[in-house]
Nucleic acid binder design. Structure first.
Length: 593
RNA sequence: GGGCGCGUAGCACAGCUGGAUAAUGCGUCGGCCUCCUAAGCCGAAGAUCGCGGGUUCGAAUCCUGCCGCGCCCGCCA
């Protein structure tokens, strides 16, 4: 309720001055009321107690007596040492109906020259299909992208393609040296690929990768394979175009398959940047050169080079190696080159990384600092576990995103079929797809990223309150009302605000609660974006949907064939806010469901 | 062993820069469809905020010790 702040400050200022409080420190003490029924903004008076030698509640009472309510703040009360200010119903209704709440659009970049943000997320090795654990990165990252756009930032999303490491080399080696029969023989003790995904290249080619991994553990073949792979890695690091091309031919179909899965979740990227670029264009060797001149630089016996980050306060492992004994670079070195390049593209960087990358990320940031660069904001997330324990492709203990999406859609279809008997199969399929994918996204977004949560099918497929369908349902109700009104010949036009406001309407509690939820909507968005915590905004949207439902219950927009214009205006603005917020979270807004 | 993170009702999860009766969902119990989509709404029961110390007028929130869980501690990516 930041919109109320200046009004409250104006009221408080003279009253506090009269008590002898003349500095502005109290302004930062005004905060959003915890007790929603007491007020919107509150001033705790405890801090004044000593200075004024008065009890806090006495101070609050004195202030209350000294302040006159007005059209904006029409309720001031003092309880237990708090002075509470509540926005006036009519003022708030007028404020919102007049179109003062910013709606935003998560699908476009602002063009007003605002801050440009480069968000790198997912960047998974292109060697196999997404399981729910790996997909947490993509869902969090894409949501941050969307919320930044909704907030008004200029955003570019990037996938950093690891096109030259050992993992890709293993895949390329396997594809060149093994045929399908051999692969299936090697993997005969494992679960076969779900036939539904047999022709999907991420599910298909990962078999070659897995078979190669098995062979790499086989003592009789290990040597020969390691040598071959080692040569490929080495060649790729020297920028050997032929090898890099064979790598690309190996991983690109896999990556395409993975992106197909993300696409179904409405996750897209603006740019794909290949790791090898920074080797072939000389950036990496330039950086290694620069690093070797730093005072915290060190050289190991075999010529490998590192930075002593312990000298800069890093605890635990202090040596950060950026160059191997053979002179080649390491993943982190290339990542540093990538970051420096990223800073030539944008003002601010955000990375989304698994918690296993914390140390690595810290090393990269500290090194960037040494080189005089800014450091990225990083959102770390914990892993998703299964009830049986850690997710592991090797043990067959995984839930693939493709399977989850199918399952979610099927479950949604069941629900729709049961309660909407008049819908066509096509309609049901469309709704089920939207509900299924939205629910999957939302279940991951709504929990705090640093919480390691356990994946459970019954929860992933729960469409009750606290889920995407709950929000979608509220939105659908608002669309249904708009359609009915339009059928009656009444359409909401934002320009008519002044006319609508000429007819005062009764504002019941539940409508007031909705208005308050709308008034705090952008406060929540700001917090969510500034702190890179999508779950905060997910919560806001649940809150908004919840209050819309209360409004829906008590304020009939259409009654006896007559449209209440004020209610319709509020319903429509709430609807827009729900819609833009849903798109911000990657939830698909439907007209009917 | 060291570093980082987490620990809130039977389960899951929220709690913004310390503040008033710790929010919400699932599950349990009870109520609401002649009226804009009941995937909804209303009500009840259910919490020593891991344990101990400290700072403060005030701590789930900050500091510290311990316990439990996760991740990391490669010249891998």
């Amino acid at each position: 309720m930041e919109i109320l702040r200046q009004h409250v400050e104006a009221l408080l200022s003279p009253a506090l001055a009269a008590l002898g409080i003349n500095n502005d420190h109290w302004k930062s003490m005004i905060s959003v009321s915890r007790e929603k029924n007491m007020g919107d903004l509150s001033l705790p008076c405890f801090a004044f107690a000593k200075q004024l030698s008065m009890a806090p509640n006495e101070i609050a009472e004195k202030l209350k007596a000294a302040i006159e309510t007005n059209d904006v703040v029409d309720d001031i009360n003092s309880t237990a040492g708090y002075l509470n200010f509540k926005a006036s119903r009519n003022w708030l209704a007028e404020y919102i109906i007049s179109g003062n709440i910013r709606i935003g659009d998560a699908e476009v970049n602002s063009s007003d020259g605002s801050k440009s943000v480069l968000i790198e997320h997912t960047s998974a090795n292109p060697n196999g299909p997404f399981h729910v654990g790996r997909a947490r990165n993509a869902i969090l990252g894409d949501t941050i992208v969307r919320l930044n756009r909704l907030y008004g930032n200029n955003v570019r999303s990037e996938y950093y393609v690891d096109d030259m490491g050992k993992q890709v080399a293993v895949l390329a080696w396997a594809l060149a040296n093994l045929d399908a029969k051999e692969v299936e023989k090697i993997l005969s003790d494992r679960e076969p690929v779900n036939e539904m995904w047999e022709s999907k290249p991420d599910h298909n080619r990962v078999r070659w990768y897995q078979a190669a991994q098995v062979l790499r553990g086989d003592d009789s073949k290990k040597h020969e394979i390691e040598k071959a792979i080692g040569e490929m890695v080495h060649a790729s690091e020297n920028g050997d175009h032929e090898v890099l091309l064979s790598f690309e031919n190996a991983y690109q179909p896999v990556l395409d398959g993975m992106l197909e899965t993300l696409n179904r979740l409405r996750i897209n990227f603006d740019e794909f940047t290949k790791e090898s670029i920074f080797v072939t264009n000389g950036d990496v060797s330039n950086i290694m050169q620069k690093l070797s001149t730093l005072e915290i630089h060190g050289i190991a016996e075999n010529g490998a080079e590192y930075l002593d980050l312990g000298a800069r306060g890093l605890k635990g492992k202090t040596e950060f190696y950026y160059k191997r004994g053979d002179g080649s670079s390491l993943y982190a070195t290339r990542d540093i080159a990538y970051h420096i390049w990223k800073y030539t593209q944008c003002d601010k960087l955000i990375n989304v990384l698994g918690e296993d990358h914390k140390l690595q990320s810290k090393q990269v940031s500290m090194t960037l600092n040494e080189l005089g660069h800014d450091t990225p904001e990083v959102l770390f997330y914990s892993f998703i576990k299964l009830p049986e324990g850690k997710m592991s492709t090797r043990k067959g203990n995984v839930v693939f995103m493709d399977d989850l999406l199918e399952e979610a859609k099927a479950h949604a279809a069941e629900v729709v079929k049961e309660i909407r008997t008049d819908y066509s199969d096509e309609q049901i399929s469309h709704i089920a797809e939207a509900v299924g994918t939205s629910a999957v996204r939302f279940n991951i977004i709504k929990v705090s990223p640093d919480k390691g949560f356990t994946f459970r099918w019954e929860e992933a497929l729960s469409f009750d309150a606290d889920s995407a369908p709950f929000i979608m349902y509220s939105h659908t109700r608002s669309r249904s009302i708009a359609k009915k009104c339009s059928d009656l010949g009444v359409a909401y036009q934002p320009e008519d605000a002044a006319v609508i406001l000429q007819n005062p309407t009764n504002i019941p509690d539940s409508m007031f609660e909705l208005l308050r939820a709308m008034a705090t909507h952008n406060d929540a968005l700001m917090r969510s974006v500034e702190q890179n915590r999508p779950n905060l905004f997910a919560n806001q949207l649940l809150n908004l949907a919840n209050h819309y439902n209360g409004f829906y219950r008590d304020c009939k927009v259409i009654s006896n064939g007559e449209v209440n214009q004020t209610y319709l205006a509020v319903s429509e603005i709430a609807s827009k806010l729900l819609r833009s917020g849903m798109i911000g979270l990657g939830i698909e807004p439907l007209e009917r469901m």
